Simulated assay, not measured.
Amino acid sequence: MELIDQVSINALSKKDLLLILKALEYTHENTGLEDFIDLRNSIVKEICFLTETAEIDFINYLESNN
């Protein structure tokens, strides 16, 4: 189980990360379950904090060249 602590998003491409975020948004919109949008927002918030990037800049970066 110690390997789970080392899981990261380093291996995810921009396209894959954007797809995950969009899937969470879509699922929230179609189910009304807040857990999905909360998870999406949590992921974005954490990545923006770690990269010192504004959310809009991060999303624009992911959407560029896709």
Rank of each mutant, 00 (worst) to 15 (best):
M1Q: 05
M1T: 13
M1Y: 12
E2H: 12
E2S: 03
E2I: 02
I4Q: 08
D5F: 14
D5Y: 11
D5I: 06
Q6S: 07
Q6L: 08
Q6K: 14
Q6D: 08
V7F: 04
S8W: 00
S8C: 12
S8I: 00
I9T: 15
N10A: 11
N10G: 05
A11P: 00
A11D: 14
A11V: 00
A11H: 12
A11L: 09
L12K: 06
L12R: 01
S13L: 03
K14A: 07
K14W: 02
D16R: 14
D16Q: 15
L17R: 01
L18H: 04
L19V: 04
L19M: 09
L19H: 07
I20F: 07
L21H: 09
L21W: 07
L21I: 10
K22W: 06
K22V: 03
A23S: 12
A23E: 07
L24R: 02
Y26L: 15
Y26K: 14
H28V: 10
H28P: 11
H28W: 13
H28L: 06
N30I: 10
T31N: 09
T31C: 07
G32R: 06
G32N: 10
L33G: 02
E34W: 13
E34D: 04
D35I: 10
D35M: 04
F36T: 04
R40E: 01
N41E: 11
S42K: 00
S42G: 15
S42M: 04
I43C: 09
I43A: 03
V44R: 01
V44A: 02
V44H: 00
K45D: 03
E46R: 15
I47P: 04
I47V: 15
C48M: 15
C48G: 11
F49P: 01
F49T: 05
F49G: 08
L50R: 13
L50P: 08
L50M: 09
L50N: 05
L50I: 03
L50H: 14
E52I: 06
E52R: 12
T53H: 10
T53G: 02
A54G: 13
E55H: 12
E55W: 06
I56A: 09
I56D: 01
D57S: 01
I59N: 00
L62K: 08
L62G: 01
L62H: 09
